[in-house]
Design a protein around this nucleic acid. Sequence first.
DNA 1: CTGAAAGCGCTTACAG
DNA 2: CTGAAAGCGCTTACAG
Lengths: 335, 335
Amino acid sequence: MSTLKDVARLAHCHPSTVSRALSNTSYIHPDTRARIMAAVEELSYHPDIIARGLKKGKRHTIGMIVPNLHITIFDDIAQSIDTAARSLGYSVLFCHTNDDPETERECLDRLRSGFTDGIIIASTGRNNSMLRDIHSDGLAVVQIIRQHDDSISSIVSDYRTGSYNAVKYLYAKGCRKIALVNGIHKGVYALSTYRTRYEGYVSAVNELGLAEICVCSGSVVNTFEEGCRCVGELLKVCPDADAIMTAVDIFGMAALKVLRERDIDVPDECRVVSLTGCLVGHLLEKSLTSFEIPAELIGDTAVRMLVDEIEAPKDSKPEVQNVVLPASLSERESS
Amino acid sequence: MSTLKDVARLAHCHPSTVSRALSNTSYIHPDTRARIMAAVEELSYHPDIIARGLKKGKRHTIGMIVPNLHITIFDDIAQSIDTAARSLGYSVLFCHTNDDPETERECLDRLRSGFTDGIIIASTGRNNSMLRDIHSDGLAVVQIIRQHDDSISSIVSDYRTGSYNAVKYLYAKGCRKIALVNGIHKGVYALSTYRTRYEGYVSAVNELGLAEICVCSGSVVNTFEEGCRCVGELLKVCPDADAIMTAVDIFGMAALKVLRERDIDVPDECRVVSLTGCLVGHLLEKSLTSFEIPAELIGDTAVRMLVDEIEAPKDSKPEVQNVVLPASLSERESS
DNA sequence: CTGAAAGCGCTTACAG
DNA sequence: CTGAAAGCGCTTACAG
């Protein structure tokens, strides 16, 4: 690992001259420049961007905190954040929390300690005051997928309308016993994504004069097994449900699995729709109708908003923005 | 963002004293310590770990370069790397390459520029000399899943044996027309993971006196669509194949899909086995028999090996280690 | 027990 | 056009 000094020594000039030559920040005599370039080559010198950041007060790194990658929308989001960040000259620090507030706190603690210029987070909502702290301490923050704090920018999808529309869509297909398998939507562990989906569902169902049939997960992490359990419970309560809406794809996959085991034909006897399309839906043997949340756009926009905030001069930070993107229906075999 | 200096000013002492108090590196008078702690609290001071690293020559950050998260084993590996790194006090910088050598080069260039103490990479194999350069420059490096360079530690699975065993397994089930849908296994874009699988397949097939039926993907990134195309081609060449082995799960899913479209019953008329289990297999409507590669163990071990190398004193770096882990058969509905 | 100084690898006014 | 100095936020011998 050679340093500026090493290059300077080899090129017979001052480190500051090397710095200037490499950053193209002032005119350098061609001979000097040539000697410097030769030395850089010879030592295969790579400037230490972090040390540069120390001086400039920038790290060129953003933190990304997501719950979990496995068959969730977050794997796509993570990739699009990485791509967008790289194109703007930023690196991304990856943390996953499994939606455990304690882990989340740990991640935030690290990221605030000089590692990043800003943070993109899909949070549990249980460390809001810490997040505000970090934000007012000078780090840029953008919430994605879940908005827990009005004072911090966010970019989410309109889950309520998605859910509402899903009921209407299924009703139009002739379904009259439309069930919802949801994430946790009440109590301390409730997430707004599930609460709003529940509300959208209830309002549509009431409007149409249908019965409310809803099973809510008992686990913070949405697993396949928990999905199977919920669908099983649902079919106990309402064995002749003719439609199942699931909050997330992995629950949708659980529904397809359980219905197949019970020899209930999809979609003829029971239709299945997922409210969070994460690209897995169209790969399934029986493909899953989903409301696709625009993962790539969310990642992309989040990075753009974050970097805008990071790079704005201290006295003219951009205003808090709360972006809401619609989900779009992808109709497939399951409905 | 308050600094050591701010704390010192408020606590009426020297910054170096604050530093010592916080790092517990020498005895501090209780009164002084109390004043310091109060100041830290009041300013909600968080030490800048990166600046600390500058002085100490450590970043406490590792880079992770993977091809692609989406329905691959890399989402599990990424999570386990994150978990293991965090537990050892390291953060992880995330990059994905889509197996594009140019992107990979870009990622390596960033990571070597002072961002990390070491790199975990599932590489394309087309930037080996750069990787060696980085390694001899003093950064720790560990290869995962794909080993392209003997001089750098690695941790992979025994793909050849996995593939060989899969043929034997299918033969024992009565299959006699066993096909392989592989990733790119020859030419400049070939990866050893696919080459060795091909070799294992060929040697088993020869041993058993069966015909070789192999279709190889034409795309660097293993997509569902390409999988479908390959399976389609395979069924043209050999319409009565009674077993399909696929290099990766997403090809396995493609096989299930195409066979269903053609009304070929799985497993009665044709069995399907994936050679890279990535946890998606058991979530499918018709679950997918897979050779499970121990993703968690790989991530975990990779971090441990990397950190060992990072933290070893300069004159006693650990020897190059090439770890090979077996894949284990998870028998499911598709076979 | 604690202060003052030097230094990690860089950048950037300030001179000349 | 380029050198010398100061400084980013921290740590750590060295004194006292």
